[in-house]
Design a protein around this nucleic acid. Structure first.
Lengths: 349, 349
DNA sequence: ATGAAAGCGCTAACAG
DNA sequence: CTGTTAGCGCTTTCAT
């Protein structure tokens, strides 16, 4: 058995209570005795038993809230699963987690949910915000009230959130550019597609892409003008069709948003499949099919499960131990998927 | 607070002990009473508190063993870190883990370590074996003795191990082939390099590669004869140099083992960098540099940390709850890394 | 067949 | 400043 606080107490000739106070520097203990206790603990390599600790701490009750948006998308479904798994696991530690969900993006609804959850007494919030000044301000107010907020999947940059966990979209854009460059040794024209420009995520994906598509060396790639497709397959289809017909030397398409199915369809209809490489985001069932049929070359995936799973733990840790996350920006892995490595691996992610 | 066994006991008018026996079907309880207890538990949505459970179970002591090989390699260092982290986390549950390590591969040493650990009384073993009949047989004998074995990183196929956790090397070979095909739209010649053919891992990586490099569609790629480089940079360098000079249309190199630095050096010396794409394995510091300098296009990485981290937990779960892993082959994710997504993400992997 | 009681390791409230 | 005590939820004897 590992060494226990009881044993230290006996060796030091004091009680468990004193050992506990000494080891946690809670004060109210004779400095000399404390020193002695620390010494014995160090010699014995004492490590507090986490299970015992958790058991007694589970008496404190915590109430957390989680607010998700765009729950109709496959990616957010995975995020959701992560949140729920965390909720189940934390239930044993006395944590209650209340979840609220919206379809689509809706600043008003988010603000309403925040208000509701706060009135229910949540002590911490995990939010997938949209990038609106109102929400940023609301997060700052929560901070003033002592309610920590963690943003997930999408960030509220500049606000006083405890942390953000999600994809580094600029980096993801760079990664996509790197892939296209590797696939296009002869250069050619590349069409960038994205939802709206006021979608921060898409915007960052686009910036990273454009900053990187023409690197220091080699192949010259000509970037066509950016086209917003508003996440719609029909728009993406039309834009792609136009671009393909106007540019016989179009060799790559970068889809930073939804709409990839439309783009792929247009490529196939024009008989350019294989000649035109398409890179898109998020490993959902549709993209898995598009990979298998060689319509997509690469999909960049984010660790959606982790984005949902970790915030409740981070909030719990903060509330229970006043321990903030190590970094403010917790970027999840940018996973590159092809048809060959896109089945789910073992483990929870 | 969540519902506890105590509450159920009160509602059923029995004691906690009876509730416990009933809920776990341990017998020695009146069937009618048991039914009543089950009913109440279901109605209240009773979930046993994992922390309480863990606390009392931590009285049982477990002794586990782990045997690693080739500890001089960066990948196994990461595996090692995973094992150690698991050991720390399991210490609170009454688990002692004894680790033994070899440099290089050495069947004799592994067998000795196994014997030693067994004589020390370990109840389960995590082993990174080499593919030798002696070790397979030894694992079978351990199975007969009731000592579960989990192989990690490398497998002992056909033996009665509880599970294997590691990379699906055939699949990884396919993935590499897919990447080269995407990068070589014009086809060309590809040189495959690997350590020995009696290294199962390399062999599988090679087979997957060769079975896939010429797909159903498109570009014709000519595969040069496989060359063993015995994991050595100097051999790889020489082989590559020869191949480059003999084949002006060589466009790709697949390094299934170590030796990639030698191959990359040869490519650069012959002035073919950029023209010849190189794919290699394992995201170690050297490969990160080779990615950054564009000497490597892609690195296929395995979740080495996870390979070390999970086996102790799986063994513990098996010993404590007789719960075997869900699958016999626990394949870890095949991660595709480029210069842009090859810095460590957040989290423990 | 069942209840009572002990105890896992820890923290916190209360007395001194 | 320090010891005592109670108790977190559960499993496991030990009586009955």
């Amino acid at each position: 058995m590992a060494v226990t606080a009881q044993q230290i107490a006996e060796l030091a000739g004091v009680s468990r209570g004193t050992v506990d106070r000494a080891l946690h520097n809670r004060g109210r203990v004779n400095p000399e005795v404390a020193a002695k206790i620390h010494k014995i603990a160090a010699e014995l390599g004492y490590k507090p038993n986490l299970i015992g600790q958790a058991l007694v701490k589970s008496r404190r009750e915590f109430k957390l809230g989680a607010i998700l948006q765009s729950v109709e998308t496959p990616t957010i479904q995975i995020v959701r699963a992560g949140v729920q798994r965390a909720a189940e696991e934390l239930a044993a530690s006395g944590v209650e987690l209340i979840m609220r969900e919206n379809r689509g993006l809706d600043t008003e609804m988010v603000l309403e949910h925040i208000e509701e959850l706060v009135s229910q007494g949540v002590q911490g919030l995990a939010i997938a915000p949209n990038n609106s000044p109102e929400i940023r301000q609301c997060i700052d107010e929560l901070y003033e009230q002592g309610i920590p907020v963690i943003t997930l999947n999408s960030d509220a940059p500049g606000s006083r959130r405890l942390a953000f966990i999600g994809m580094d979209n600029y980096r993801a854009g760079q990664t996509a550019a790197g892939l296209l460059r590797l696939m296009l040794p002869e250069g050619g024209k590349v069409l960038p597609l994205a939802g709206h420009l006021n979608n921060t995520a898409h915007n960052n994906r686009l910036n990273g892409f454009m900053d990187t598509i023409n690197g220091e060396t080699g192949n010259e790639i000509e970037l066509l003008a950016f086209q917003p497709c508003f996440d719609r397959d029909d728009y993406a289809h039309e834009i792609t069709q136009h671009a393909l017909r106007a540019n016989p030397d179009l060799t790559g398409i970068y889809v930073a948003s939804n709409g990839q199915a439309g783009a792929c369809a247009a490529v196939e209809e024009e008989g350019r499949k294989g000649k035109v490489k398409v890179v898109a985001f998020d490993l959902n069932p549709m993209n898995m099919e598009l990979l298998q049929s060689d319509s997509l070359s690469f999909v960049l995936d984010q660790k959606a499960f982790e984005q949902g799973y970790r915030p409740p733990f981070l909030l719990f840790d903060y509330l229970q131990n006043r321990k903030a996350p190590e970094k403010e920006l917790l970027y999840t892995d940018i996973a590159i998927k092809t048809k060959f490595n896109s089945d789910k691996p073992v483990g929870m992610e």
